[in-house]
Simulated assay, not measured.
Amino acid sequence: MALARSRRSQRHIDYWPGFVDALSVMLLVITFLLSVFMLSQFFMSREVSGKDSALGRLNRQIEELTSLLALERSKSSSDQSSLASLQATLDATAKERNRLQGVVDAGVLAGGGAAVATSDAAGAVTREKDNTSRALAQVDILNQQIAALRKQLGALEDALGASESRDKDSQARIAELGSRLNVALAQKVQELARYRSDFFGRLREILGNRPGIRVVGDRFVFQSEVLFDSGQATVNPDGHAELDQLASAVIELEREIPPDIAWILRVDGHTDKRPITSPQFKSNWDLSASRAIAVVQYLVGKGVDPQRLLAAGFGEFQPIDTGDSDDALRRNRRIELKLTER
């Protein structure tokens, strides 16, 4: 009986302490894993926060750069390629940021679970570190591109400033030359006006107060009857004497006027408004031009330089008297001489 009790007492073993020890070890392991995971989440959050700050600064830099590029886009087509490269890098960075944000969000949700395997946590931390490193490397590259582009913009601004300075200098020189040219032209016009006055004064002395010859403004006027027969364009004998004296005055004028003054003696033919019936001339315009040419040719024959003469015909379209009387019609039939600039 006593032997039976001893055997039963030997078979009764207390397992509870060992179970408690195993459970304690398991709790310690789980606590360690949770601590590791929480620490990884903490460091990963700090890295992501720093990355977001860097990306925020990058976005502000990109906005500033975009504004600068908008101002310079019209000035240099070469910046288009740099802008396209910058935009591509920006898009890639934005995609990476969105992906990292998704990973962070997923990691935060996963942290709410009761247990996470150590290998998974360590792998997630490693991947996040790698992603963060790549993102920071892209940020550095983008900053370098921004700096290079700013240098290009600075060079463009310097070139533009130099071009504007040269343009201002050119405009100033052009204005000075224009002013000097205007002064020179004014002097030449004054000199020509003086010679014109002398020339007409000399003609008055030569031709005197003969009937059919008068001065009207800045023109010396011959009535057509003084030089031509009615309806004809050939200088008559009486007109030869008048034109001979005119030729002598013009030749003398050629010797007096300096060669750098461009002048001509314009010979204008005019008729009255009555239609011409001569088969030799088709119109009054034809008759007036032919008479002006005849005077010019006569003067050339007397030695006047043809480069100093101009013949023009006006027909009946420039009357000095609009009346219909015989005297008005006679006044409109005329040859006018005008000394003017060429």
Rank of each mutant, 00 (worst) to 15 (best):
F43K: 03
A122K: 01
I30T: 13
D91A: 08
E96P: 00
V104G: 07
S45A: 13
K51P: 04
Q80L: 15
A88H: 03
A106Q: 05
E47C: 04
R73V: 10
M44G: 11
V36Q: 07
S77H: 12
Q80K: 04
L90A: 09
K129V: 13
D130N: 05
L83Y: 07
L58K: 01
S45I: 08
G111D: 03
A110L: 10
A110Q: 05
L55D: 07
L65T: 00
L28I: 08
D120W: 09
A22M: 10
R99E: 10
V103I: 06
S76R: 02
A84C: 00
R127G: 04
E47K: 07
L27T: 06
M44T: 15
R127Q: 03
A115E: 06
S133D: 08
L69P: 01
A114H: 00
K51M: 15
L34A: 07
R73S: 10
K95E: 15
T66I: 03
V25C: 08
D79N: 15
V29P: 00
R127W: 03
L33N: 03
S24Q: 06
T118F: 13
E63M: 05
D91M: 04
S40M: 12
A124S: 01
L136I: 03
R99P: 00
M26A: 13
S82I: 08
F43G: 03
T132K: 01
D120N: 07
S81T: 13
E47A: 09
L71P: 01
L33I: 08
E128S: 14
K95D: 14
T89G: 15
F37P: 00
A121E: 00
F42W: 07
S119R: 14
V116T: 05
S85I: 12
A117N: 09
T118A: 12
T126Q: 08
A115D: 01
L58E: 02
N98M: 12
K51G: 15
D79H: 15
E72I: 05
T118M: 14
M26D: 15
R99N: 07
S24C: 07
T118L: 11
D79R: 13
N131F: 05
A114C: 05
L68P: 01
V108Q: 08
N59H: 08
Q80I: 15
R127P: 00
L55G: 02
Q138M: 11
A22C: 06
L39G: 02
V108D: 02
V36K: 04
S67V: 10
K129M: 06
G56Q: 11
S35P: 02
G107A: 11
G50S: 14
L58G: 03
V48H: 14
V125P: 00
D120L: 04
L100V: 11
L83E: 14
A122M: 04
K51D: 11
R127S: 04
V25M: 12
G112N: 07
L68C: 02
S49P: 00
K95R: 15
S133Q: 12
R97T: 08
T66Q: 07
S77N: 10
K95Q: 15
Q41R: 13
T126K: 11
E96G: 08
L90D: 04
Q87M: 02
D91L: 10
Q87G: 01
T126S: 14
F42V: 06
G107E: 07
V48R: 11
